[in-house]
Design a protein around this nucleic acid. Sequence first.
RNA 1: GGAGAGGUGGCUGAGUGGCUGAAAGCGGCUUCCUGCUAAGAAGUUGUACGGACUUAAAUCUGUACCGAGGGUUCGAAUCCCUCCCUCUCCGCCA
Length: 426
Amino acid sequence: MLDIKKIRQNPDLIKELLSLRNPHYAKILNELLEIDKQYREKLIEKESLEAERNMLSKLVGEKKSKGENTDSERESLNSIKEKLKAINGLEPILAEKQQEFLLELPNIPSSDTPYGKDENDNKFIMEWGTKPSFSFQPLEHNDLGNANQELDFERGVKLSKSRFTVIAGKLAKLERALINFMLDKATENGYQEYSLPVIVNSDSLYGTGNLPKFKDDLFKIEGEELYLIPTAEVPLTNLHRNEILKEEQLPLRMTAYTPCFRSEAGSAGKDTRGIIRQHQFNKIELVILCKEEEAIAEHERLTNNAESILQALELPYRKVQLCAGDLGFSASKCYDLEVWFPSQEKYREISSCSWFSDFQARRTQIRFKRTDESGKSKNEFVHTINGSGLAVGRTLAAIMENYQTEDGEIIIPKALRPYLKQSSLV
RNA sequence: GGAGAGGUGGCUGAGUGGCUGAAAGCGGCUUCCUGCUAAGAAGUUGUACGGACUUAAAUCUGUACCGAGGGUUCGAAUCCCUCCCUCUCCGCCA
C-alpha cells in the first residue's frame, strides 16, 4: 500500500511513476484523490461535531452534579446527535472507498527499474555456469521420472487431481536432501529457520497483498476464514505483523521450508507436463526485514544467497531484472533467477527476489523505533525483501534434466552428496 | 466439544456511567546530585488519523483507541449483544 500522504503531496509524480507500469493507474489515482478530498471534508465535519458533543456532555455532567438545569444543553446535544448520525452513515463508506482505491494501486518501481511492457523488456544481468552438452537427445524430467514411476503423475491424479504428483523412492530422497541442503545453506547465510503454519487467516493474506486482489489463486478452507499458503512469504512476513521492532533487531533474516498451494487459476493448459507448475509444491523462502537505507544492499545479498544455491548445485542459470511492466504488484524492484532446462532449451524461473520497499510493511504494520542522535525516537515502516531459495520441485526437475546420462542415470551434484549416500540415481 | 474464570498502557495492576488516555508500582528516557561501577531527586513516557503553523522539522490543537465489532446513553474502559483469544477442569486425540 502506498502512503496516502505522499500521494497528496505529490500526485503528479506518483501518477507518472505508476504509469510506467500501466497507464490506467492514472485514472485510479484521480478517483482516489477525489474520494480522499470528500473523505477529509466529512472527517473534519464529524470530528468538530464530536468535539462539540464532548464539551457539552462534560458540561451536563458538571451542571448535574450541582443540581442545575441542563435542558438547553440536552437540546443542542440531541441535534448534534442527529447530525452525527447522518455523517456516520457516510464517513466510514468514504474511508473504506479511499482504502479500496489505495489497495488497488501497485508499488512504485525503483528508479533503476528498466522501462518496458512485459517480460520481453526485462534486462539481462548475467549468466552463470556451463550448459551441459549431450551426445544424445536429453529427456524431459517427466519422462525421466515416469520411467520407474518415481514421478507418479497418474497416482497423483488418483489421490487428488491434475497438477498433483506423487514423488517416490530415490527421487523423494533427493527432494528431501534438497530441502535440508537449502535450509542449511540459508542458516549459514544468517537466516533464522522457522517451522510454520501452512494454513493462515485472511488478515495475514491481506498483509502480504494476496487478498483481496488475488483471491482466485488461493485454496480456501471451507466454512472458515482460513486459506492454504501460496508461499512461506505469507507466514514469515506476517510473523511481525502489528509489531514495533527494536532498531537493533534489524536486519531480520528469516527462512522456512513449507509446502505451497496455488490454485493456478488462469493457467489452464500451461506447463501441463512435469512438475513445473503444480497445485502443491515445496519451497524454501527467504525473507528480510530491514531499514530503508539497508534495503538495496540486503536485496542484493538475498539474491546472491539464492544464487549461491544454484552455484553450489552447479546448475546453469541466468539473472534478469524485471522491467516496470512485468514487476509484481507489491514489488518495487525484482530479479528473477532462471535455471536452464536442456530438454526445452529454455531458462525457467526458479526464484524471484523482490524488494517491496515499505509497501508490504504499511499493510502489515511492521515498524521499528528509530532513535536519532538527539535521543528522539520515531516509528518507521521497515522495508521487506523476499525470494525463494529455492523452489524445490523446479530444482529437482532441473537437476534431473541437467545431470542425466545416456542410460537414464542422474548424477547427484557434489554439494548434495553429504545428504545422500550415493552419487547417482538410476 | 462441555463447564467455569478472564482479556486495561513496555510489564504488574487499580478502576462498575461523567473531573480516566486511564491511579499506583516497575521499567524506559531526560536533567540534577553524590569522587566511583551503584544510590538518590525532579521531570517525562502509547498509537493512528485530521486541522493550524511551517520549505520541512519542531510545536500547538481535535478525534478515535482499555481483545474485535455492534448497541443503549447527552456521556461508556465501566451497562447490553455477537465474535475472537487466554487460563483451569472434563472429554477426545497425533
